[in-house]
């Protein structure tokens, strides 16, 4: 299946902004993020959205989905 992955802020560094990935069926968000070497710590902070709706690391992805992850910033 094909999934569009969008990364934001510092998660883009050394990775990408948007990329279409070919994944095995029924991949979870956590598996995708592990494939992208996003650390557990970064994952804990990140907000996950699938097709514009809030989702979790255990959510399953389907063909044609768009997965977005952004880390809320806190500095001032």
């Amino acid at each position: 299946m094909l999934v569009t992955v969008k990364l934001f802020a510092y998660l883009r560094e050394g990775r990408f902004k948007v990329r279409v990935l070919e994944l095995a069926d029924d991949h979870t968000v956590r598996q995708v993020l592990q494939d992208l070497s996003i650390s557990e710590k970064e994952m804990k902070i990140g907000i996950i959205m699938i097709n514009g709706k809030r989702a979790s690391f255990e959510s399953h992805l389907g063909d044609g989905d768009t997965l977005a992850i952004f880390p809320p910033l806190a500095g001032g």
């Binding site: 802020a9 510092y10 809320p72 910033l73 500095g75 001032g76």
Partner: peptide, 10 residues
Amino acid sequence: HGAVNGWYGQ
């Protein structure tokens, strides 16, 4: 609300 980190903002 506003927040910043490095080159990024929200």
